[in-house]
Nucleic acid binder design. Structure first.
Lengths: 112, 112
DNA sequence: GGTCCGTCGTCTACATTGTAGACGGATGAG
DNA sequence: CTCATCCGTCTACAATGTAGACGACGGACC
């Protein structure tokens, strides 16, 4: 009865990035957060598609913000992770932590 | 120039599970390790297919072991994570750690 | 005020990864 | 010898990851 479908790699990243931004999770910043942390480009398509699927699953939600903050209405959607999303994230985390137990040494080596 | 394709969720699990078993990473045990840690069933198909792709990418390799350990030759393939695999794993880890920075509190809450 | 430009978000299409179950070969039991 | 199992392979399909084309909006510039 455990969740059948896990969060994908990228989905998790998006969720985490939103959480990082807390209450100011605007699309642009979330995207930047991911690009910065993961050190790779994130195309708009990849980003929004994932966001869409996440919303369809009820893991994120958003609200339109006042349009006057930057004068650009379209850029002002604020995202948030739902309880369900948080829960799924924790579940994935748990599994990874369990699987990583005792491997910190191996995983931390940075090679030459 | 950073790696274009990331490790998938399940791929990472498999890699970690192999590492857990160290030098005794037989298919069966690796599979058990995952099922135990992730608390979900792992079908043979999913498992071997992933292993196959991982090998094609050069992230894991295996060797046939002597057939007399348990008397079952087919079950004696020993898997190992390659340097490239380890490297990819670390890369993914790094990204996740960065994205998770400061979120331990949120992620650790266990609800009710 | 009209035109050009850059940015945002949407959409379509396709590649990669995730997953299940059918299938065949091999082994040990009876 | 026949049966019941278990392992690993294979096929087929679902879900996730990704890029770029497209249209809309607002600002800059003339």
């Amino acid at each position: 009865m455990s969740p059948k479908s896990f969060l994908g790699e990228f989905e998790q990243m998006v969720l985490l990035a939103i959480l990082q931004q807390k209450d100011r999770a605007f699309a642009l910043e979330v995207r930047r957060e991911i690009e910065g942390s993961a050190d790779r480009a994130v195309s708009r398509g990849a980003f929004y598609t994932t966001l869409d699927r996440l919303e369809k699953k009820g893991f994120v939600e958003w609200e339109e913000a006042e349009a006057d903050v930057t004068g650009r209405a379209s850029a002002l959607r604020r995202f948030a992770v739902t309880e369900a999303g948080l829960s799924a994230l924790r579940e994935s985390r748990r599994a990874f932590d369990a699987l990583s137990r005792g491997l910190d040494g191996v995983l931390r080596e940075e090679g030459a």
